[in-house]
Computed example of a mutant assay.
Amino acid sequence: MLLNLPPIPPTRIDFSEDDSAWIAARITEVLKSGRLTLGPYTEEFEAVFSTYCGARHAIAVSSGTSSLEIILRSLDVAGKTVLVPADTFFATAAAVIAAGGRPVLMDSDIATMSTSPEEIARRITPDTVGIVIVHIAGIVTDRMPEIMALAQSRGLWVMEDAAHAHGSTLAGKHAGTFGRAGSFSFYPTKVMTSAEGGMIVTDDDELAAAARIFRDQGKASFHQNLHIRMGNNWRLSEPHAIIGLRHFSHLDEMIRNRRRIAGIYNEALGAGRSRFVPILPPEACHANYYKYPVMLPNGVDRSAIKAWLRDEHGVNCAGEVYELPLHRHPVFAAYDTGDLQQSEHLCSRHICLPIFASMTDDEAHRVITALRAAEEREIGRG
């Protein structure tokens, strides 16, 4: 390992001693109160998150996955088709199926890891009711205005899977606020976390009201045991809300730090300076850099180069986004349209460099040194 330095992790979650003490004191408070779910800390978390995003409503739920399904149930997708990118996490398409709909997979736009208006247009059928846009790696495609115009012209809604995109914006507008609703995840790998949890943001009063019913077993109200929708136990607990509130208070600072590290990578790898080509956000996108994806040179074996970076330089690359497109997972094999080549290429040809809020400049330069050495030695070529 280079100079016997400690390894660089792919990512890291940071809570200071002050954070831990703040969280512990408030969890103790709610334990004494007995109000352990859907209480004042959940309401506060919702209020600050909706204000931050510029949305009228924020509804806290148990996970990013449940936030997706709740939105889709609120939009009544049962028996209808919904366009979903092939390059996304299992939950995006699984939520459509769980809500009674059928996902139709779309190919990728490699420039932004999203999809294009042209691809959306060719997938629309008479049964299509909506489109899911996924902001992969925290990048908001600069074609969102075109996508929204296309959806409006065809009478379709747009929802956003913004699980990666807390704080990302396009021309000042927050991810999650372009369409009818946006879904966020607070899983521990994300830019901010509540340990487990998710959030729905929307300006639609009816959708927000339905979401609050769905998250609490479909009950008419928290204090009324009358079930009016086929909901589930999708509540966020007060301890999770407390953790989320505290981590959220650092979100802008954490994004600034991630962008500083990304700037070092951009300077070294961008503008044709390397055969490791970063997928950079569009100029109008202020990305949170949840991931830093880099396309590999042709002929380089991904497993081999990741192993060499780890073993020789202590550089541990993050998991891909994503290693396989959805139709290559057995559970979604029936949804393979046979023409998703860009998604397959994108998924198979990239790695994600280490990036996290507490990463140092020296660590970022170590990553660049390792990549340059790999390039000079042609590591990973057969």
Rank of each mutant, 00 (worst) to 15 (best):
N225A: 15
A86K: 09
M230H: 13
G39T: 05
V132E: 06
H329V: 09
G172I: 00
S237C: 11
R35A: 14
G39S: 07
A165V: 09
I133R: 00
T11P: 00
I70R: 06
A151E: 06
P239A: 14
M1V: 13
L38F: 14
G155D: 09
E146L: 03
E378I: 06
C285N: 06
I131V: 12
S116M: 01
L251K: 09
S114F: 06
H227S: 15
F276P: 02
R154F: 03
V84A: 09
L346I: 00
N225M: 15
S185Q: 12
S237L: 09
S67L: 09
A99W: 11
G272D: 02
T115F: 01
L340P: 02
E146P: 09
A268M: 04
R102W: 04
W308N: 07
S108L: 08
L72P: 03
P188I: 10
I131P: 08
D205C: 04
M192V: 15
I59R: 06
T177P: 10
I147Q: 02
Y289M: 13
A181F: 04
P239E: 13
N225T: 11
F248C: 08
E44A: 08
P293K: 01
A86M: 01
V61F: 00
P188C: 03
A95C: 13
V191H: 04
G155Q: 10
R377F: 07
I355G: 00
E118A: 14
S33F: 14
S168F: 02
L226R: 15
T169G: 03
R215F: 01
T369S: 12
A370D: 00
E118I: 06
A98D: 12
H223Y: 14
L324G: 05
F89K: 13
A175F: 00
V30Q: 13
P145V: 09
L150I: 11
L150A: 07
S343Y: 01
E238N: 05
S274P: 08
R258T: 09
A318I: 09
C347M: 03
A364R: 04
F49G: 09
I228F: 04
